[in-house]
Structure formats: structure tokens, C-alpha cells
């Protein structure tokens, strides 16, 4: 399947991209992260500490064990600092 993967804040800076299209058969968010980490060091740097990251699936907050079936857009970012 094809996924739009978005990165924000320091995750975007570490990976060096705001977004990319990823072809994957990953079953869960964690599986996708493992694929990305295996690609290149910059992904390993960005995903070094999953506890300090949040994930959104089709623009709704989700978890790293969530399934990817039917998901079109996934975003990774640090805890939000609005207000």
C-alpha cells in the first residue's frame, strides 16, 4: 500500500523531509517505524525514543501498535506545545 508519511518539528528536522510517499506492507505503525529505521541513520535518529514521539493516523492521534489497514496518511511528531 501507499502511505503519505508526514514529519513535524524536530522529527522533520532530523529526517530532513516534511513528507514523503512510502510503499509498504507494514501491518502496524511500529512495523512501519522499524522499516524506516532500517533505511538510514537519520530515521534511526528521529525514531530513537518512541516514548518522546506521538503519531496521528488520518489526522487522529493514535498509538504505535495501531494497524495501518485503510490508513492513507500518517504523521510523526513530538508532544504538542500549543496555546
Amino acid at each position: 500500500m501507499k502511505l503519505e508519511v508526514l514529519y513535524f518539528a524536530w522529527v522533520r528536522e532530523r529526517i530532513g523531509l516534511p513528507r514523503e510517499t512510502v510503499q509498504t506492507e507494514a501491518a502496524t505503525v511500529a512495523d512501519l517505524v522499524a522499516e524506516l529505521v532500517a533505511r538510514e541513520e537519520r530515521y534511526a535518529m528521529a525514531f530513537a525514543d518512541l516514548a518522546s514521539l506521538r503519531v496521528a493516523l488520518d489526522q487522529e492521534l493514535g498509538s504505535f501498535d495501531a494497524p495501518l489497514a485503510g490508513v492513507r496518511e500518517i504523521a510523526f511528531f513530538p508532544p504538542m506545545t500549543g496555546g
Binding site: 513535524f8 518539528a9 524536530w10 496521528a56 492521534l61 504523521a75 511528531f77 513530538p78 508532544p79 504538542m80 506545545t81 500549543g82 496555546g83
Partner: peptide, 20 residues
């Protein structure tokens, strides 16, 4: 503050840092 997807970065004389 913690559920709307905004991220703040402070720029100062010593460079830039993301607000934790």
C-alpha cells in the same frame, strides 16, 4: 496546549530550540 498539533521553536542569541 497538548492536543492541538502546534510546535513552538524559540530563536535566541544562542540559536534555536524546540519548546519541550
Amino acid at each position: 496546549k497538548s492536543r492541538a498539533p502546534f510546535w513552538k521553536k524559540e530563536l535566541g542569541p544562542d540559536g534555536a530550540s524546540w519548546v519541550a
